[in-house]
């Protein structure tokens, strides 16, 4: 794949990352994980656990309070100059709502990074953009404006744009959010196909268990209580665990109380008044 610094280094390596906003106390402290080449890696966690914040640190939108992020062996924050942008060109990102440019049609959206960063001819850029739209199943929609296509199609087009510079790594922020189960399953299949056929590594931020079980090879689960990673591994294996309770609760869609064995008996309720779990 093009745009990678070092073929031997893992696509992502995060060392002792502390995630925080401003002067506020950190959301996550000293977390470590690694995304291997060709794997679909899940960054999981409940609402407010900091998974999107981790993504913003890893893709270079927010400078970590502490720790280092390596993309294909290169320290993302090694200097404040153009190095960061060089690193950013090694990966593609699909944002939660697609983030397609509303004033451009799909072909222009996908072509834009190629026009900016390559010396390919105009015909080759158009061919490459059509190719990528075809790969995500959007042949025939090249001249559609983003507002005219469905949410699922917008996410597919966003993946095509993330593929524009042939990165070896793609990040997906909540790919299933706002999609119906059929569209979501189609998108999962597309991610699996791209990972298999192009050998891409994917970093997927999600809390959709259906998607996780369907596509993710390995995952970390973030917990805001311990401000770190509570479990790491194959999500299907993690789902069989009963300890720690947070892991069991997350993968089995239970309340934390029930996972701790403090849950209400059938027909009864132990929930304290005014407290919503």
């Amino acid at each position: 794949m093009s745009g990678t610094f070092d073929g031997q280094a893992p696509p992502v390596e995060v060392r002792d990352l502390t995630v925080a906003y401003g002067e506020a106390p950190p959301i996550l402290e000293k977390i470590n994980f690694r995304i291997r080449a060709g794997e679909i890696f899940g960054i999981l966690g409940g609402s407010g656990s900091g998974k999107s914040s981790v993504l913003r640190n890893v893709i270079g939108l927010v400078r970590p309070r502490a720790g280092r992020v390596f993309i294909f062996g290169q320290d993302l924050w090694a200097d404040d100059g153009g190095h960061l942008n060089d690193c950013r060109r090694c990966f593609g990102v699909m944002y939660q709502a697609g983030a397609l440019f509303g004033s451009m049609n799909l072909l222009e959206n996908v072509s834009m990074p190629m026009r900016e960063f390559t010396d390919m001819s105009a015909e080759a850029i158009e061919t490459a953009a059509r190719l990528k739209l075809s790969l995500v199943g959007l042949s025939g929609y090249e001249y559609y404006m983003p507002a005219r296509i469905s949410g699922g199609m917008q996410k597919r087009a966003a993946i095509a744009r993330a593929l524009a510079l042939d990165p070896g790594l793609i990040f997906l922020d909540e790919p299933s959010a706002g999609l119906d189960p059929i569209t979501s399953a189609g998108l999962d299949q597309l991610i699996k196909t791209l990972a298999k056929n192009l050998g891409l590594a994917f970093g997927v931020v999600t809390h959709e268990l259906g998607s996780v079980m369907n596509i993710v090879d390995r995952a970390i689960l973030l917990d805001k209580e311990i401000k770190g990673i509570v479990a790491e591994g194959d999500p299907r294996e993690l789902a069989r665990r009963s300890e720690p309770p947070y892991v069991a609760a997350f993968f089995n869609r239970q309340s934390l109380e029930k996972a701790k064995g403090e849950g209400p008996a059938e027909g009864g309720s132990k929930r304290r008044p005014g407290r919503i779990e």
């Binding site: 093009s2 390559t118 001819s121 080759a124 061919t127 490459a128 190719l131 790969l135 192009l198």
Partner: peptide, 9 residues
């Protein structure tokens, strides 16, 4: 893919 696109173009 972009190399392939250049060749096919």
């Amino acid at each position: 893919l972009n190399g392939s696109a250049q060749l096919l173009s």
